[in-house]
Computed example of a mutant assay.
Amino acid sequence: MAIPHLDSTSASSWLDGAHVEESVWALRPDYVAVLMVATGLTPGPSDAASEAVLREAEASARAMVGDGLPEAVGHVAAWREAYRGFGAKPQRTRSSVEALLRRVGDGLPRIDRLTDAYNAVSIANATPLGGEDLEAYAGPLRLVRARGDEEFEVMSGGARASEPPEPGEVVWRDDLGVTCRRWNWRQCVRTRLTESSTSAVFICDVLDVEPGDAVLRAATVQEDLVASLERVSPGVDLTTRTLRR
């Protein structure tokens, strides 16, 4: 069921199958997704290269937030509004970037070199960004409103369990189940990056802060992600697709 090894041609073909359901566009017609397939990655634990990338981003994020709260940052506020649109309470289930920005003051945890690289881009741009192991995927990636009976794998008490989404929740999924709940709140165990992941798909979620600026923001984040991945994984092969209404 796993995705086979991809070259640039087959990566483009897989990305061609990705889509956003119309019911999601109805919630946020300004939404833009940047999907980036990376092959030939150099995995492993956090190291000097990923540390440098993350430290630079933490400094930028601290300057951006200043003495205020993360939710006062324009793009974070836009995601709070989007969460309310499908019934989530952003004070309880925060977007991924808000959760990270709330930890920047004390420094983010170092996870592994690939996760550190994309977390750095996320906080520097105040934009939700996730990375998942491509070999764990079955079928195309799509953003949908959940039925409520889909599989979503988590760890509970040291064992794998399923915590299905709420009906109507915005989720990323593949043929096997949900890969990320509440748009970008929480990733599943099955597709998470590990210290041995050599191929990945990175997902950047962008909304307007000012009318029409999501496309420009998405392009900036894409450029920064390319640069970050090339710093920690020289020679990586990248293929990108942007989804917009």
Rank of each mutant, 00 (worst) to 15 (best):
D16W: 00
I123R: 07
A61S: 10
H19I: 07
L141W: 11
E51Q: 13
T240G: 04
R192V: 00
S228P: 13
A124V: 08
V154S: 02
T220R: 15
G235W: 00
R181D: 07
T198G: 04
A219F: 08
A26N: 09
L229Y: 00
D106P: 01
V76C: 01
E56A: 15
V189Q: 12
G85R: 10
A33N: 15
G105F: 02
D47F: 03
C204M: 06
L229S: 02
A99S: 13
L54S: 03
N119D: 14
V20S: 11
A120Q: 05
P90Y: 06
A117E: 02
E153F: 05
R142N: 12
A77D: 12
L101V: 10
V226P: 01
E210N: 11
G148I: 05
S13L: 13
S122W: 00
V178Y: 06
D116A: 09
G168S: 07
R192T: 11
F86T: 04
T127Y: 00
L141R: 14
V201A: 03
M1Q: 05
D116H: 07
R186Q: 13
S50Y: 12
E22P: 01
A61K: 06
S23P: 00
V76E: 04
T198E: 13
R142S: 13
V37L: 14
D237E: 15
G131Q: 06
L216D: 13
V171I: 14
E135W: 09
G177R: 08
Y83I: 04
E56M: 03
L6E: 12
L143H: 06
L134C: 10
P109H: 08
D47W: 03
D112Q: 15
N119G: 04
E153L: 13
D7W: 06
A117T: 07
C188T: 00
R92T: 09
G131C: 05
G105P: 04
P128N: 03
E98S: 03
R190M: 06
R84M: 11
E58A: 10
S96C: 05
A52N: 10
L27T: 03
V97W: 06
T93Y: 11
G66S: 10
S60G: 11
V236W: 00
R110K: 10
R231P: 00
